[in-house]
Write a protein that binds this DNA or RNA. Structure first.
Lengths: 236, 236
DNA sequence: TGCGTCTCGCTAATATATCAGTTGTCCGAT
DNA sequence: ATCGGACAACTGATATATTAGCGAGACGCA
């Protein structure tokens, strides 16, 4: 067994991003924006031409998107943008609730002041943005940063990144649901409740607040399914 | 938007498994068995010859293994089997604890009798196997089935499968740690405690029992690192 | 008209070739 | 002796070609 090899990349001229990653990010963005709607056939020939790349990195990108649940590759046949699947939503929600409640329990037992300060700052900025309906992108970004700050407070920033990748269908639902009256106020109130209970050293209270907060993401799925049936997998 | 397209594959002659998947499973097995030890350089030319496949499915397989944290691909350079990284272990453990405690809380609040029956049956079989030191593979399989039964009891079988893929480094640690005296008894006792508390409708008790049980997976990491330093990433 | 089979065009998986970048070795200069 | 630069061999990423399979439409028969 050789000596300890370098486990970090030396500074160099390596391309920071592969073509595949760029294609993946762009297609993912377009799917989440509902620009590429469910059941859209993704033609590799067309996409390769559009992106001016060969089939290999495009293939890599599509495989990643399939892992995210955003596309489904039918072998030797075609590739479709998926419909939102309630099963998948429930599984993603479960994972998210499990992880985020564990995070806030740990924070309530052992606070990390810089992380809580960051989270509180995000909350303050979000509070200001509630009154500015044109700043949804910024609000969403702060929302993500709020949750990331909590994860980093328990040293689990990478877990947060991993979970983000799985949130495709929840994000698509949120996109369908915009703008929903009172929703932003509800989110801000939820964040405040969570932080208050963490700071009150109340693990189960914080977990309950987080659970309630996250339930907002799926509380309107049935209504959305009725309103946009073509975006959802038909139930048995 | 077209009519609801078929979302299941019609029975047909499609290959059930891709070459890439087969290669992935084999390499993953060999890494987890510590047959391919950390820092081993994986030569694509050699592997393609060994498996008698072209570079493309081999590339697919290696990319999946990289996502599992088992190999690291240095662009334009080489591909190595990873050392076990403490950071990665902690993240995997976090995710596992979060998910499994959430599962048992839910089961304690709302038991699923078939799932609990399955779990109890696994426990009984494991109890018998403790006295048969040559049956580790079977014991591990029952262990996995025990946990799967719990996940299925809350309708989250797919989440269990997802988590399994991330367990590579924990499984490698367990492999290094075999046979550890009293370990099997400890596992069996943990399973029993978990089930008892679920059946006693004690969510927090069940969560605590699961937390204690899972902590066994990482309690000996420091000792293993001292014993097998070449298998672990050096700490800063 | 409806159903089954066949054919062809299309697609994804794999094979092979080429390009882009890394790394190790050798040689020359100090 | 040591260090730096050049070059060649090697590797992974991408491009292109070929193979394997799917599915829709057309045709024939009852």
């Amino acid at each position: 067994m050789p000596d300890n090899p370098p486990h970090s990349r030396a500074a160099g001229k390596t391309r920071d991003r592969t073509v595949a990653r760029t294609v993946y990010d762009t297609l993912r963005r377009r799917i989440l924006d509902l620009d590429l709607v469910p059941d859209t056939t993704l033609s590799r020939t067309e996409l390769a031409k559009d992106f001016q790349v060969s089939l290999t990195p495009l293939r890599d990108a599509l495989q990643l998107l399939e892992q995210d649940g955003l596309v489904r590759i039918f072998p030797q046949s075609r590739t479709l943008v998926t419909r939102i699947d309630r099963r998948d939503l429930l599984e993603t929600h479960f994972l998210r609730v499990a992880a985020e409640t564990e995070v806030v329990r740990r924070l309530a037992r052992r606070p990390d002041m810089p992380a809580l300060k960051t989270a509180r700052a995000c909350l303050d900025k979000q509070t200001v943005l509630v009154a500015r309906p044109g700043r949804m992108d910024r609000f969403s970004d702060l929302d993500r940063q709020f949750h990331l700050a909590l994860f980093e407070g328990v040293g689990m920033g990478n877990v947060h990144a991993m979970l983000q990748r799985k949130l495709g269908s929840i994000l698509r639902c949120q996109r369908l649901d915009l703008p929903s009256p009172g929703k932003l106020q509800e989110i801000v109130a939820g964040h405040k409740d969570i932080l208050d209970r963490i700071e009150a050293a109340d693990p189960e209270g914080a977990a309950g607040a987080m659970r309630a907060h996250l339930s907002g993401s799926i509380s309107r799925v049935s209504a959305l399914r009725n309103k946009f049936p073509d975006y959802f997998v038909a139930e048995d």
